[in-house]
């Protein structure tokens, strides 16, 4: 049983999302994830949840390269709208890039340990989602 009650995937790559969902389905008692195509869509979705008082995601799988709003911009925006009394979600960055520049950037967000290189398979998800 996972500690995370609400899981969210933000990625514009449909095939990658398919793979992640497939990986999550293989695990028992994992809720169905919320899917957003880019950062801006996710921010808009989160704003709505805050307005309606529904539960915010506690775990986010976030792609770095996306049109309209990429992963890093999303984190900044999310921090700005996140209610102060609510616990911040656990975020894992995902990228197909193998360039060192992206790892460096993750370090500036203290996320260098939460950094996944695509493809992300079920084994990886099990390790990070289950205690």
């Amino acid at each position: 049983m996972s500690n995370y009650k609400k899981i969210c995937i933000i990625d514009d790559d449909a095939i990658a999302v398919f793979g992640l969902k497939r990986g999550l389905q293989s695990m028992k008692s994992i809720p169905e994830p919320l899917i957003y195509e880019n950062g801006l869509q996710a921010i808009e979705g989160f704003k709505k949840m805050i307005e309606e008082g529904t539960e915010l995601p506690s775990f986010i799988l976030l792609d770095i390269n996306m049109p309209v709003m990429g992963g890093w911009d999303f984190i900044s925006q999310m921090n700005a709208i996140w209610p102060k009394d609510k616990e911040k979600p656990t975020i894992y960055m995902m990228t197909s890039s193998i360039s060192d520049q992206d790892v460096e950037k993750a370090r500036t967000f203290n996320l260098e340990k939460n950094y996944l290189i695509k493809p992300v398979f079920a084994e990886t998800l099990v390790r990070i989602l289950l205690p």
Partner: peptide
């Protein structure tokens, strides 16, 4: 190459794996 080609190759490798 690192971003765009790699994203396709990662998808291909994932799908073939499945």
């Amino acid at each position: 190459v690192s971003h765009n080609l790699r994203s396709h190759s990662s998808n291909l490798s994932m799908l073939t794996n499945f």
